[in-house]
Structures are given as structure tokens and as C-alpha cells.
């Protein structure tokens, strides 16, 4: 799989096919058993701790539930990476944080605590935090899950805008087809830990493979079976001895 610079690449697939695992491999929160992950030609697996941390400063990651630090205010959450990695003065930090919060429309929420935010707001704050170090790569883990349509639209537009204005390469993991189609330049479909198809969302819709068809059209039965693996139905009903 290749992710192009400056593009939004989406990774789709049924639950449990390894989408999040792939993200964690890219960010090396997990170690690959086999294969290589190259970022700018550098193998992630071979990095030392300091090399890894240097790499991670160039990667922003948006977690599914935001993963804001609950003991810090919205402002401090966004300021957190700056305080950890830069020697910027207090005034400059304030400037940067407010700019980023403004970009996600939450400048007014700077003094709230994470517990006071709605799900959509928390995710936008997390997005502001992810871009505060001006990363080259932005990774979104299921950014659309559990959002109302309005928040969803906001996030979709933000992903597109941030990618284009900041020149970021984005990787989006999701299975919300409509939203994916709206933002991504290229998509991969994962199944059982391997990419089974790739292309633009339109191309995938035309794709004729059984697996791709089932996923893109939401068919209940197909390669991904409706029934969890079980003994024969009539056999089990008649067999009274075992539950």
C-alpha cells in the first residue's frame, strides 16, 4: 500500500479486519511481525526511541474518542505538545493555540474542561491538538463514529480543509462510506488483514469483486458471513444434551 503525499487516503473495511492495527503499526505503537513500513523512505520499525519520538512530532493523530487529557483544560490540551517540545514563550503559545482552536471553531471553548464538551466538540479539540505542531502526516482513527449529522459535516469539511491548506498527508480509517467518498482521494479496502481493493471511491463502487460489492453496498451476507461459525442448526436444536 502506498500513501501519497498531500492526499487524503482512506482505509475502509469491516470491523476486526485490522484497520486500527494498521494505524498503530504506522505510528509504531505496535511492532510489525513481518513487512516494512516506510515513511519518507525510512523504516519505522528500525527507529530508536529518540528517532521514533522525532518522527511522532511530525505525525498528528486523532483518536476515536478524542483522548483529551481529562485533567487539563481545552487550552492546555492543545498547548500540551507545544509545552513538551518547544521553548516558545507564553504569549506565543497562546497565539498558536488560539489560532488552532479558531480553525476548528472552538476558540470560545478554550477554558472548558474536556468533561464539559460534547462528543463532536471533543473531537474537534483533539483535531486542534493534532495539528498544533504543524505535522506532515495526520492520522484519523474513525473520525465519524457516533457523531450527529451536523458534527459529521463539520469534521468532513475540516479534514478536507486542513489537508488542502496545510499541505498535510492524511490517512483516514473509517467505514462511513458517504463521508469517505466526500473527503478521500484514494481508498483501500481491507479484509482479513490485507488490502483487497484500492482506487477512488467511485472506482470501488464499480468494483465487481464479491468482497468489495458486499462492503460497498452493505449486503448482509457474502464473504463476510451473517452467521457466526456454529454447528449445524437442526442438529443443535434437536440435540438436547448439550446447550
Amino acid at each position: 500500500m502506498t500513501f501519497h503525499r498531500g492526499a487524503i487516503t482512506s482505509i475502509m473495511g469491516p470491523s476486526g479486519t485490522g484497520k486500527t492495527t494498521l494505524l498503530r503499526l504506522i505510528a509504531r505503537q505496535l511492532h510489525p511481525d513481518r513487512g516494512h513500513i516506510l515513511i519518507d523512505g525510512v523504516d519505522v520499525a528500525g527507529l530508536s526511541q529518540s528517532g521514533l519520538y522525532a518522527l511522532r512530532k511530525r505525525i498528528g493523530m486523532l483518536f476515536q474518542n478524542g483522548a483529551l487529557l481529562t485533567d487539563l483544560s481545552v487550552f492546555e490540551n492543545v498547548a500540551f505538545p507545544l509545552r513538551a517540545h518547544t521553548r516558545l514563550g507564553e504569549r506565543l503559545i497562546r497565539l498558536v493555540v488560539l489560532t488552532k482552536l479558531h480553525a476548528v471553531g472552538l476558540r470560545g471553548a478554550a477554558d472548558l474542561m474536556p468533561s464539559e464538551l460534547s462528543g463532536g466538540m471533543a473531537r474537534r479539540v483533539a483535531l486542534a491538538r493534532a495539528i498544533v505542531m504543524d505535522p506532515d502526516i495526520l492520522i484519523y482513527d474513525e473520525p465519524f463514529v457516533g457523531l450527529d449529522p451536523i458534527s459529521m459535516g463539520v469534521i468532513v469539511r475540516l479534514i478536507r480543509r486542513l489537508n488542502d491548506t496545510l499541505g498535510i498527508s492524511s490517512i483516514v480509517v473509517s467505514h462511513d462510506l458517504k463521508e469517505i467518498a466526500a473527503v478521500s482521494d484514494q481508498s483501500f479496502l481491507l479484509s482479513d488483514g490485507a488490502a483487497v481493493a484500492s482506487g477512488s471511491p467511485e472506482e470501488l463502487k464499480q468494483n465487481d469483486t464479491e468482497m468489495v460489492r458486499q462492503f460497498m453496498h452493505g449486503l448482509p451476507d457474502g464473504p463476510v458471513a451473517f452467521h457466526y461459525e456454529a454447528p449445524d442448526y437442526s442438529q443443535q436444536l434437536l440435540d438436547q444434551g448439550t446447550p
Binding site: Q64, L69, T70, P81
Partner: peptide, 12 residues
């Protein structure tokens, strides 16, 4: 709530 992973991702 992934706060520890988030910290690692922020290189902290």
C-alpha cells in the same frame, strides 16, 4: 480512553 497512547503519539 487512549490518553496514554495519545501522549505517546505526541512524543511525550
Amino acid at each position: 480512553t487512549d490518553q496514554l497512547s495519545a501522549m505517546e503519539m505526541m512524543a511525550v
